[in-house]
C-alpha cells in the first residue's frame, strides 16, 4: 500500500552553516524554554546540537532505520529514553555530605548513572592527532517533503500545513502509537509519557504567523541559521541550495527529502608527517562527508573554497556575503518582526 502526501503550496526551508556553529546550544535552550518546559517534556530537545562524528541524539542517531529505500518504507525503531538521555537529577546530598569532596554526579530517575545524553560525546570527534577534526551538527524537525512520519501514521495523526509545509502532530488525533517516531530516520520525534502523545519541533509556527523567526534561528549568536520560503528566489535558502548549490540535505540516502539544508564543514587539509599541510589529503574524510551530505558535497566545498579565496583577495562574492550575514535581519527572510514589540495579551491575564 503506497501513501502519497501532496506537496504544499509553499515550503518553509532553512539552511544551517556548519562552518559557523559554536556548539553553544543557545538554539537548544531557546527552544527548550519556549516549548518543552512542561511536565512530560523534561527530556525533550526538539532542537539539539551534537558533535560529529559522534553518537548523536539519540545514541547512534542515524542507525535506527526509518525513511525510504527505493521508495519503500524502511522499518525503524524508537530508542528508549536512556538512549536520548533523561532529564538528569544530581546527587547533591552526597556532595554536600562529603564537605564538597564527592563528585557532583548526574543521576537517572532510578538512581543509576547516565550512560548517554544530548551531545554526550561533545568535542571528541574523529581522526587522530594532528589530524583530528569535528564539527557541530544542529538538528530540528526538517519538515521533509516526503515525510516518513506522516505517512507511517495509520490514523492521520500528523498533517502538513498547506501554507508553509510545516508538519504538525494533531494531539487530539495522536493515540501514542509511535510509528512516526520509528519511521523518522533523523529521530526527531519524542514521546510524552504522561499524555501518551508524540511531540516534536513545530518550526515555531505561531511565531512565523506573527512574522517572527523561529527561536532557534533568532537566538543563534553565530548567525548560523537562514530561513525563508523556498519559492523566494531572492531568499537565502533558494540561493544557497539551488543557485550556489552549497547547502545540502542531511543523509539524503534516507529518502525523505528534508527541508533543512547544511553548508558542509570546510576543514583545512591534513598534516603530513613533517607537520606541513598536505593539500592532496582532506582533514575530514571525503567518504564521511559524502555519507552525511550526499554526492554534492565535494563540489559544494570547492565552491565555498573558491569564493572564500575571492573574498580574501578583496573581490566581491555574493556567496560569502550571504554566509557572513553582516545584517542580522538578512538571515530571517520575511520573519524580521521583533517579538518584544508585538502586541500580545499580558501573561496570566
Amino acid at each position: 500500500m503506497a501513501t502519497v502526501s501532496s506537496r504544499p503550496a509553499r515550503q518553509l526551508a532553512m539552511v544551517f552553516d556548519l562552518n559557523k556553529c559554536l556548539g553553544c546550544q543557545s538554539c537548544s535552550i531557546a527552544c527548550k524554554t519556549l516549548w518543552t518546559d512542561a511536565p512530560g517534556m523534561e527530556s525533550m530537545w526538539w532542537n539539539i546540537v551534537n558533535t560529529m562524528p559522534g553518537g548523536g541524539t539519540p545514541r547512534d542517531v542515524f542507525s535506527h532505520g526509518g525513511g525510504y529505500k527505493n521508495g519503500e518504507p524502511v522499518p525503524g525503531t524508537f530508542p528508549p529514553l536512556r538512549e536520548f538521555g533523561e532529564a538528569w537529577g544530581f546527587d547533591q546530598e552526597a556532595t554536600f555530605a562529603s564537605g564538597g569532596k564527592a563528585a557532583f554526579r548526574p543521576l537517572e530517575r532510578d538512581g543509576s548513572s547516565p550512560e548517554w545524553g544530548p551531545n554526550w560525546d561533545e568535542d571528541m570527534g574523529g581522526g587522530q592527532y594532528p589530524n583530528s577534526y569535528f564539527f557541530y551538527l544542529q538538528q530540528i524537525c526538517a519538515n521533509c517533503s516526503k515525510p516518513a512520519c506522516l505517512e507511517a501514521c495509520p490514523r492521520t495523526g500528523l498533517y502538513r500545513r498547506e501554507e508553509d509545509g510545516i508538519i504538525l502532530i494533531d494531539e487530539e488525533r495522536c493515540h501514542g502509537y509511535r510509528f512516526c517516531a520509528e519511521a523518522c530516520p533523523y529521530k526527531r520525534i519524542y514521546f510524552n509519557p504522561g499524555r501518551a502523545v508524540a511531540q516534536k519541533c513545530i518550526a515555531c509556527y505561531p511565531r512565523l504567523e506573527a512574522g517572527v523567526a523561529p527561536a532557534c534561528v533568532r537566538q543563534c549568536p553565530g548567525r548560523v541559521r537562514h530561513v525563508d520560503y523556498m519559492d523566494n528566489l531572492e531568499g537565502h535558502p533558494y540561493k544557497l541550495v539551488h543557485e550556489w548549490k552549497v547547502a545540502l540535505p542531511l543523509r539524503p540516502d534516507f529518502g525523505t527529502e528534508p527541508n533543512v539544508f547544511y553548508v558542509p564543514p570546510l576543514a583545512p587539509p591534513a598534516f603530513n608527517e613533517a607537520g606541513e599541510f598536505d593539500e592532496t589529503k582532506p582533514r575530514i574524510p571525503d567518504e564521511y562527508l559524502r555519507e552525511m551530505f550526499g554526492p554534492g558535497v565535494e563540489r559544494a566545498l570547492e565552491t565555498i573554497q573558491v569564493e572564500r579565496e575571492k573574498s580574501a583577495r578583496g573581490e566581491p562574492s555574493e556567496l560569502i556575503d550571504i554566509l557572513i550575514a553582516r545584517d542580522w535581519n538578512d538571515l530571517l527572510g520575511p520573519f524580521t518582526a521583533n517579538p518584544a514589540e508585538l502586541d500580545r495579551p499580558p501573561r496570566g491575564g
Binding site: M1, E72, P73, V74, E151, A152, P154, R155, F179, E182
Partner: peptide
Amino acid sequence: LDAQPSAYVQTS
C-alpha cells in the same frame, strides 16, 4: 496485515 492503513506498518 494488508488491511493496516499504513505502508510503513505493513512493511515493518
